[in-house]
C-alpha cells in the first residue's frame, strides 16, 4: 500500500514520460495512444466531479463530449473553407485558433449541461440515469439527421487547430497541450473537492435532506457540479476532435457515455487520478487485447462484470491507502 499522493505523482509522471521517450525513439503511435489516454482522462475527470463527488450517475456525458467536438469541428471546417458561420445578424467567422475554440467549446458544453441538468436534476436515481441518457441520445439523433455538418458520415477537417508557438501536427507537441489541460483539470478537481463547494457536493451525495436543513439546497450544488462537469468533458471533446481531425455522431453515442463511467470505476470513483488510471488501463487493454482478439470487448465485459460484482474500489482503491481527510 502506498499513499495516494505518491501513486498520483507516479501515474502522472509515467503518463508524461512514456510519450516523451517514445517520441525520441521515433514511435509516434505510442504518443498518439498516450494522447488518447490523456484526453479521455480529461473527459472522465469532468464526469468524476458529477459522478464521483456528487454521486450523480450521468449516463449522458457523451452529449458534452460531442458538443465540444462539434464546436471544434464546425469552427475549424468553416475556417478552412473560408465560409462564415453566419452573416446575419452578425458576421461570425470560423476559427482554427485553439485558444478561441476551447472557450467556445467549454461554454457550449456548460450551456448544454445547464439545460440538461436543470431538467434531469429534478429527479434522482433511475430516472436521472434514464433522462441523461435520453437527452444525449437526442443530440446523437440530431447530429445524424442534420445534414449540414456531415450527418451520419461525420465531418472531417484535415488539419488540427493552431496554438501560438507550437506545431500541433507534431504528435508530442499536441500531447503536451492535452497533458497540460489534463493537469489543469486535475488541479481544478482537487481544489473544488477541498473547497466549500466540494464539501457541500459530497454532503449532497451522502445526505441531501440534511444538507437542505442546514441551509443549502442540494439542487443548486448539483446543478453547478453538473455544469462544471459538462464544461470539462466538452473541452476533452474539442481536443479529441482535433486529435482525429474528424467529428462524428459516434462522439455522442450512449456507448461513449458508458465508457466514461467505466473509466472512472476502473480507476476509482471520486479519486483524483481515478480517471487517469482508468483511461490508461482501458486503452492499454484495448490496444493489447484488441490486437489479440477482434472480440476483446466480450472478454472486457466479463472482466468488468467481475470487477463490479466482486472487486470494488477500482485500481487506485486497491493500490492506495484509504484516503484520510486532512
Amino acid at each position: 500500500m502506498i499513499p495516494e499522493r505518491w501513486l498520483n505523482l507516479g501515474v502522472l509522471t509515467l503518463l508524461a514520460a512514456v510519450p516523451l521517450v517514445a517520441s525520441l525513439a521515433g514511435q509516434p503511435f505510442t504518443v498518439t495512444l498516450a494522447t488518447k489516454i490523456a484526453i479521455f482522462a480529461l473527459a472522465a475527470t469532468g464526469l468524476n466531479i458529477a459522478l464521483g463527488l456528487g454521486g450523480l450517475v450521468s449516463f449522458g456525458h457523451a452529449a458534452f463530449f460531442g458538443v465540444g467536438g462539434y464546436a471544434c469541428g464546425i469552427l475549424a471546417s468553416h475556417a478552412r473553407n473560408y465560409e462564415p458561420l453566419s452573416t446575419w445578424p452578425w458576421d461570425i467567422e470560423g476559427t482554427t485558433q485553439m485558444l478561441t475554440i476551447w472557450p467556445i467549446a467549454v461554454l457550449l458544453g456548460g450551456l448544454a449541461a445547464l439545460v440538461i441538468g436543470a431538467l434531469s436534476l429534478r429527479t434522482s436515481g433511475i430516472f436521472f440515469i434514464m433522462i441523461t441518457l435520453a437527452f444525449a441520445q437526442m443530440l446523437y439523433y440530431f447530429a445524424i439527421s442534420w445534414p449540414t455538418y456531415g450527418g451520419e458520415d461525420g465531418l472531417p477537417f484535415y488539419l488540427r487547430g493552431d496554438f501560438p508557438g507550437l506545431n500541433t501536427m507534431d504528435p508530442i507537441q499536441f500531447f503536451g497541450i492535452c497533458f497540460a489541460l489534463l493537469l489543469a483539470a486535475l488541479f481544478t478537481f482537487h481544489r473544488l473537492h477541498r473547497a466549500r463547494f466540494g464539501l457541500s457536493l459530497e454532503a449532497a451525495r451522502q445526505n441531501p435532506e440534511r444538507l437542505r436543513s442546514l441551509g443549502i439546497r442540494p439542487f443548486h450544488v448539483r446543478l453547478l457540479a453538473f455544469v462544471i462537469s459538462g464544461m470539462i468533458t466538452a473541452l476533452a471533446g474539442a481536443l479529441y476532435a482535433d486529435l482525429n481531425r474528424f467529428v462524428s455522431p459516434a462522439m455522442l453515442s450512449w456507448h461513449l457515455s458508458g465508457e466514461l463511467i467505466v473509466l472512472i470505476v476502473l480507476g476509482g470513483v471520486g479519486r483524483l487520478c481515478g480517471p487517469v488510471v482508468g483511461a490508461a488501463a482501458y486503452f492499454l487493454l484495448e490496444h493489447w487485447a484488441g490486437a489479440a482478439s477482434e472480440y476483446w470487448q466480450f472478454w472486457f465485459g466479463l472482466l468488468l462484470l467481475g470487477v463490479v460484482l466482486f472487486a470494488r474500489g477500482g485500481i487506485v482503491g486497491a493500490l492506495a491507502k484509504d484516503h484520510t481527510h486532512d
Binding site: R196, F197, L199
Partner: peptide, 22 residues
C-alpha cells in the same frame, strides 16, 4: 467536516470553489 459543513451552510454558502475549507 460535518461541523464545518454546518458552519459553511449557515454563514458562507456552498459556492466557494477554490479555498481549502479544512
Amino acid at each position: 467536516q460535518n461541523v464545518v459543513l454546518s458552519l459553511v451552510a449557515r454563514h458562507h454558502g456552498a459556492f466557494g470553489l477554490f479555498r481549502n475549507v479544512l
